[in-house]
Design a binder for these strands. Structure first.
Lengths: 255, 255
DNA sequence: ACAGTATTTATCCAACGGGTTAATTTCTCC
DNA sequence: GGAGAAATTAACCCGTTGGATAAATACTGT
């Protein structure tokens, strides 16, 4: 998808009808494209791993989906586990990089938190494979992630970002408590993550489609209300907004 | 474990040394025990599925762990998927049954909510396989659960229980908002579930052991503070309680 | 234009894994 | 005490699967 499909020179069989096998010689059977190949493999692997889990993923299927020969996976990335780790690292890289662009520093603390919640929610919605990959990795007790050197480093800046927001909120009087940024982030992620990653079973259990448009809007409002109410101490006002039926537009409103 | 191990009459080879194969005839090779067998199979399957996921689980391993012949799984329960569903149903049955004993009706609304939070947290801590099973089922988009007739029914009473608590809380003035019970329950479950089910990756990422005793205490305090603060609107006071843990750096601090 | 290397394809295979078939053993009831 | 049913064991089947080996083809620099 991202990598332009160079290889498929399906024209191999496209031997002009009539001339038996004369000198149609200069029809390439395939083209080289290492980078593109690698990207296609990783993309295919991401899909496969996220839809089937680690053990359920099939190497052959990944190859097929990538339009590659199975051997290519081992040539360009490594065996199944290494492939999985590569995919996982890519996934973390992507979300953290987007988060970096949030620019929470320049926002009013409550607005910053709200923005973080909305971003997290929408990111998870837009990238369901990310959720699956994490679930799978946790099922494996993070055995792959532990081997990764890259991933460990890229999180402290993010935590500091949140810590600053909380500190500012407390100083300005917007927030009533100096909550631990890690706890706060985990909670924010949890509210979205669990709802989405477990939507299948929850929908069955509670007998309502949690992924319906209205349900999703409702959920976002609920989460924002919950967290902001806790931080600011103004439950009523904040939850009120959640109740607003259609006018989804109103996101925040100072009392 | 639960089923008394009847079968292992390993004495089969215990033929008294000396008498070739005379009439040591009356040494049983095995004993019948259908119910026990079934229980052992389900218990073994629960462990296997929760530690390896659906695709990663090995039927032979389950049989071995249950001290049974592989054939027994098919005889007493069914194929791999049916086995998985049986395990899942048992898991749901167990937690909902414990929840029924919570007796939230007779508690002060805030206390009831706190109790629900504490129960959920401790149940997840005590039954980590439950988390894995749910994760696995969600990875499979609840395809097994959808076939289950039993499970669907046993959840409405629980929702009603929460609904009542919320209503009482609003009427008494303890709670400032009449939050949707399903949303509330999902949030409460989410805060514990995500933290625990993703503790492996989160621990790596944030560089702290989230399962250490102190970390767990801190988490429980944080969750209770968050939810109750949001409902009652008294952030400061509630988060205060979180401060209790002696050593740990001050988690919450009134301004 | 060609030699050397990088990239890709074509096959193969041994172990595995879910499920089955058929024989054995235990138990129950008459 | 034995016949028929229930429970259990033993052995096998066969498609799948991760990975490997070897040959072919495309490029690159000289």
């Amino acid at each position: 998808m991202s990598a332009r499909m160079i290889k498929p020179i399906q024209t191999v069989t496209q031997r002009a009808p009539g001339l038996a096998k004369a000198k149609a010689k200069r029809t390439l059977k395939w083209q080289r494209d290492p980078e593109g190949m690698r990207l296609r493999i990783l993309e295919a692997a991401k899909q496969e791993f996220s839809t089937h889990g680690l053990a359920g993923a099939r190497v052959d299927r990944i190859a097929a989906k990538a339009g590659a020969n199975k051997r290519m996976l081992y040539y360009h990335v490594g065996n199944k586990d290494e492939l999985y780790l590569a995919v996982l690292e890519g996934a973390y890289d992507k979300i953290r990089s987007e988060e970096r662009g949030l620019d929470l520093e320049h926002l009013d603390p409550p607005e910053a938190i709200r923005r973080l919640i909305e971003f997290t929610w929408s990111y998870f919605l837009r990238n369901p494979e990310f959720l699956s990959l994490l679930q799978t990795e946790n099922l494996a007790r993070a055995k792959h992630l532990k081997k990764s050197t890259k991933v460990k480093s890229m999180h402290s800046p993010f935590v500091e970002m949140i810590r600053t927001v909380v500190r500012r909120g407390v100083e300005s009087g917007d927030f009533q408590v100096a909550v631990d940024p890690v706890q706060l982030y985990i909670s924010i992620a949890a509210l979205s993550f669990f709802y989405l990653s477990n939507s299948a079973t929850l929908s069955v259990i509670f007998g309502r489609d949690l992924l319906a448009k209205d349900a999703k809007d409702e959920r976002l409002a609920h989460m924002a209300g919950l967290v902001l109410a806790a931080l600011t101490g103004r439950s009523a006002a904040l939850f009120e907004i959640a109740k607003a039926p259609k006018s989804r537009t109103v996101v925040a409103q100072t009392v």
